[in-house]
Design a protein around this nucleic acid. Structure first.
Length: 82
DNA sequence: GTTGAGCGT
């Protein structure tokens, strides 16, 4: 299940995202979107988790929590529209 | 060097 984490701090790193999610599930994929020009964080990233139930749990647990001192917004990505 | 809604190098 793909997950997106928005509203991240610009200083938040990919490993911080990883550690946050790894508390609830094993991450299959994790990336932090970086700006092409500055190379800094765009403030959001994507996470992939195999276990859907754990993924949903991680979303609920991490959504609204503070990461790097900032409240983050975690949601599921576009679900199969087919 | 910065910024604050979002669905990706």
């Amino acid at each position: 299940m793909k997950i997106i984490a928005r509203n991240l701090s610009r200083s938040t790193t990919e490993e911080q995202l990883t550690e946050a999610f790894t508390q609830f599930a094993e991450l299959e994929y994790c990336t932090l979107v970086l700006d092409k020009v500055t190379g800094k964080s765009k403030g959001f990233g994507f996470v992939e988790i195999n276990d859907d139930k754990k993924a949903l749990l991680a979303i609920v647990k991490l959504n609204g929590t503070k990461l790097d001192g900032k409240v983050i917004r975690v949601k599921k990505l576009k679900i199969n529209k087919h």
